[in-house]
């Protein structure tokens, strides 16, 4: 019961961050959960529940994409692939950035607020989209379908170890770091872009290993959803449950390893 109560309180405070249940609206960030939901919807419809491995083996749109990539690039399919990476980034990473977005909003002139937020988002999203695309490509082409179960197991165990490193702690704190913004002109655009990129880099160092591990599973959308919950909790609680998260990741890795053996 206490856990339910705490979860509801946590959800309420989380919604408050988007101006949905709170009092402050310097510029309402309602679009953040909307974009995130859209991303999750795209991921779900994109057939990820059947796993990259199955698609890679020749069934479904991803397998066809890989085949056509090898045969010669078709721009529309490449765009679809990048959109998948964008969807994943919007779904998972955008809700973690609400404090930074609010900071950019608060510290920008009202007449250039949208431009400042846009610059920050480009700086934040582009590295993540690139990283997600590279990770997907690696999983589809380098790892191959038969090695995927072991890759996923190993990746979760690596992510578990990563959780306990000082670098992870540093990166998590760095996600809270803000930067003074130049007020106007091209330098303002550059400072928003750079601020977004720095948060993106800290995010990748912090969350990247467990996200890669989730992508490597046979049910990436489900696994990513689990990682999303973990990342949310790490980002917004006072004392991130680092040890508990490491244990959970290790348990997932162990489970996947046993599954790989059994298969």
């Amino acid at each position: 019961m206490a856990l339910v109560r705490e979860s509801l309180a946590y959800a309420t405070r989380f919604l408050a961050r988007f101006g949905l249940a709170g009092r402050w609206r310097p510029a309402s960030e309602w679009w953040v959960p909307a974009a995130s939901l859209a991303g999750w919807g795209w991921l779900a419809v994109g057939g990820n529940d059947h796993g990259f491995a199955a698609l890679c083996a020749g069934g479904g749109p991803i397998g066809r994409l890989v085949g056509e990539w090898r045969a010669g690039i078709l721009a529309s399919q490449l765009a679809g692939w990048l959109l998948m990476s964008l969807a994943m980034t919007l779904a998972m990473m955008l809700p973690l950035t609400i404090d930074a977005l609010r900071y950019v909003s608060l510290r920008s002139f009202p007449w250039r607020r949208a431009r400042a937020l846009g610059g920050w988002l480009i700086g934040y999203l582009v590295p993540w989209i690139a990283a997600a695309s590279i990770a997907s490509l690696a999983l589809m082409t380098v790892v191959g379908p038969t090695a995927r179960p072991w890759t996923a197991a190993a990746a979760f165990l690596v992510a578990a170890v990563w959780q306990m490193t000082p670098v992870k702690g540093w990166a998590l704190r760095a996600c809270h770091r803000t930067r003074p913004l130049k007020p106007s002109g091209v330098s303002a655009d550059a400072s928003c872009l750079l601020f977004g990129a720095r948060v993106s880099a800290a995010c990748m160092v912090s969350c990247g290993p467990m996200m890669f591990a989730a992508m490597a599973t046979a049910w990436p959308t489900v696994a990513l959803a689990g990682v999303f919950v973990v990342a949310l909790r790490e980002r917004y609680v006072w004392r991130p449950p680092t040890r508990a998260t490491a244990l959970a990741l290790a348990a997932a890795g162990g489970f996947l390893a046993l599954q790989a053996i059994a298969s």
């Binding site: 405070r13 404090d99 930074a100 609010r102 900071y103 608060l106 809270h176 803000t178 917004y236 006072w238």
Partner: peptide, 9 residues
Amino acid sequence: AFSHGEGGV
């Protein structure tokens, strides 16, 4: 929230 350190706010 609890304590400080909420990213500049």
